[in-house]
Design a binder for these strands. Sequence first.
RNA 1: GCGGACGUGGCGGAAUUGGCAGACGCGCAUGGCUUAGGACCAUGUCUCGUAAGAGAUGGGAGUUCAACUCUCCCCGUCCGCACCA
Length: 817
Amino acid sequence: MDYNKQIDEKWQNFWDKEGIFNTDTKDTKNKYYCLVMFPYPSAALHVGHARNYVIGDAVSRYKRTKGLNVLSPMGFDAFGLPAENAAIKGGLHPKTSTLDNIATMKQQLTQWGIGYDWNREVISCLPEYYKWTQWIFTKLYEKGLAYKKRAAVNWCPKCLTVLANEQVINGACERCESKVIERDLSQWFFKITAYAQTLLDDIQELTHWPERVKTMQINWIGRSTGVNIDFKVDDEETILACYTTRVDTIFGVTYMVLAPEHPAIPGLIKNNPDACIIQAFIEKVRIQDKTERAAENIEKEGIFSGRYVINPVNGKKVPLWIANYVLMEYGTGAVMAVPAHDSRDFAFAKKYGLDIEVVIDNPKERLDALSMQTAYIEDGVMVNSAQFDGLGNREAMEKIADWMQEKKIGKRAVHFRLRDWLISRQRYWGAPIPIIYCDKCGEVAVAEKDLPVLLPENVAFKPTGQSPLKDSEAFIKTRCPKCGKEAQRETDTMDTFVDSSWYFLRYISPKETEKPFDGHLVDKWLPVDQYIGGVEHAILHLLYSRFITKVLYDLKYVSFKEPFGALFTQGMIVKNGAKMSKSKGNTVAPDYIIDKYGADVMRLYILFMGPPEKDAEWQDEGLQGSARFIQRALRMVDMLKEYRQSSETGELNSHEKDLVRKIHSTIKEVTLDLEGDFQFNTAISRIMELVNQTYKCLNETSLRQSIFKEAVDTVFLLLSPFTPHISEEVNEALGNKGSILKRAWPRFNEEYIKTDTVEIAVLVNGKVRDKLIINVNWSKEEIQKKALACEKVKNFLKNTPPKKIIYVDKRMVNIVV
RNA sequence: GCGGACGUGGCGGAAUUGGCAGACGCGCAUGGCUUAGGACCAUGUCUCGUAAGAGAUGGGAGUUCAACUCUCCCCGUCCGCACCA
């Protein structure tokens, strides 16, 4: 039997015709929701993408043969910058180019033998989908979780749109890597910060999520606990609130610093003769772009404000400074500076000759403020801190916080790093934000019956820095839903991540026209049993989806708090040590592989190349190995057909017994590999061993046909999640009717795996000296005696009795001399 | 700086969780079969050594009868966050 393209096509047509992958979601018994992150339809897929779908398909097929009712849907994250940019480049309308790309990708996925329920396809740029994205917006709006505010936001000068915090990587745009600049703009936000604590707490429940993803989310949410302290400005009523996590150092405050953007500054400096010098400094800092300001070793710069503030714990008057190292976005934008115990404050104090006061002493060596070379940030003993002197600083931290709360000069507080999610975009290819502005009624959300707000198709969609919808009078002009007067539509579109933050709910009832999803069925099918995708979504998509799910939970649309039960993040496929990308020119196109070797060879190699969660280096030679293995396995089928050998009766010979044992132990181990953490690479290697051993048997002995057949059958059943086309073909050749997916996953019999004899190692002082074949029924004493009788052991013993003998059951004997 | 993952042959990677290091595959070598072979089959392939043996899982110490696995200290790679108060 030869593997060729016809076999691929034959079975792909068969699966399609039989509707093998179509799932009835009304049948919720034994449900298994296997979900692979849906792709952007922007470019041709390479083998790196393929890994994602091949893993998902292997899982879905395996679960099917285990008898589960598997739902495996696919769709396209079709709105957004990548699709729009691709369209502009190709001179096409985004809708045309996106739908074209989708068609190509579907064809690719089909060619690879990836089985999806295409009846459930979800395309986020079509009105029947984005109607409900807009609906979700209005639900958040009703709850006050969607709001518009003027704020300093991240602006990408190349994409000509604002970006969410999560889309800014090292101060640069996630997509085009241009440096992001700060602009004050009025924008729409989702109040994800209202869910910061829940998003953090519930991470604990995600027991089947990779540790690194959870850690990344924890860091991103960035919870810290401390104390809010009000510092009064001297000779004035102005109060400056600051936040500290180190309230134990409060007695060591020698100055206070404000971020240049701090709103209190204009009032504080207005009577200062140096006001214009201070103003010039502030301007200078503000025009620095974010990258520069956040750069690692940027020189700390500051200026004295001319004012003083009072430390509420001791009434001490300390100078108020303005400096570039304080950020307005975090805490209150005001920092109490303790140079003795904070390295940033220390560097700043040294530069500007500010006081340094030690309040936590090093128990090993007394600190001296004048001679210190670095800040002392470790734990120690309280000094110069009034009644708290002598305490350990950890203990003092709690005591001071309590004392300050009691005296009402401080308040315990929790801060998060997480910012609200900026969702407006000044680009064309997205779902319009369903808001209407009326001169009389103000901001009004579009009513559900008026959704969707259709994205007009005949507009010049090139990015200009303003939403292209602003030019479409037909779009903008509308009537106020409340008073009926003429009104204008919001022209910004939504971030694509809004579209993808709920698509997994839509798959359950994708044809629904009266509601976004069938709540009853969604409650049965969700959370997703297995979610599979790239780690690049660790924060963005996964955090947003968790947030939207929690909102829908609070609004009682769903009854679960977390959308994804188990998450698997596969590693990248790299070539020449680098991530595959068109610009580097190191992509490997699956089409050519499919042509030359067939889908199963590509699938097998992708799964065999290494643990799926780790990055793996692509080597073309590896494909040869997979192709060779498949041909070698298929040759057994031909041999079996012509096989006329020995009798079927009588005692099994030892090779036959060994082969039966191997068949059953292979089933056992492959099953364990798949039930565990998707160890496809080791599963495949075990199947290879079974093939090797079968050949060995055929060469060395007369093998009865029934056992040979069982070996062949088992090999292709076990391979079926990985190489479905040839498995189907062999299944048919062996006389079975229908799809191999309808056959049960093979079972193993523990009885057949048992052996009478086993080879163990004989060690002397922990080193292997000899091997010994033992009968498993022998007693420990018997085995030890045999081990001592080994020639090599005798040489080491030299007639002296051994000090100690350790026997590990069916593994080894260690003799200590 | 903080947090996470990791370091095993020429290469991709195994190792039942403390019990025979290098499974399986690639590559390479030798032989066979072939008009030919980048096909196939067989055998071999950690290092040193003719051998007995000795040494090997980034480096160093420790625990143990026994360490790739556990503990401590270094070195290095990758990822995330980062003037976060």
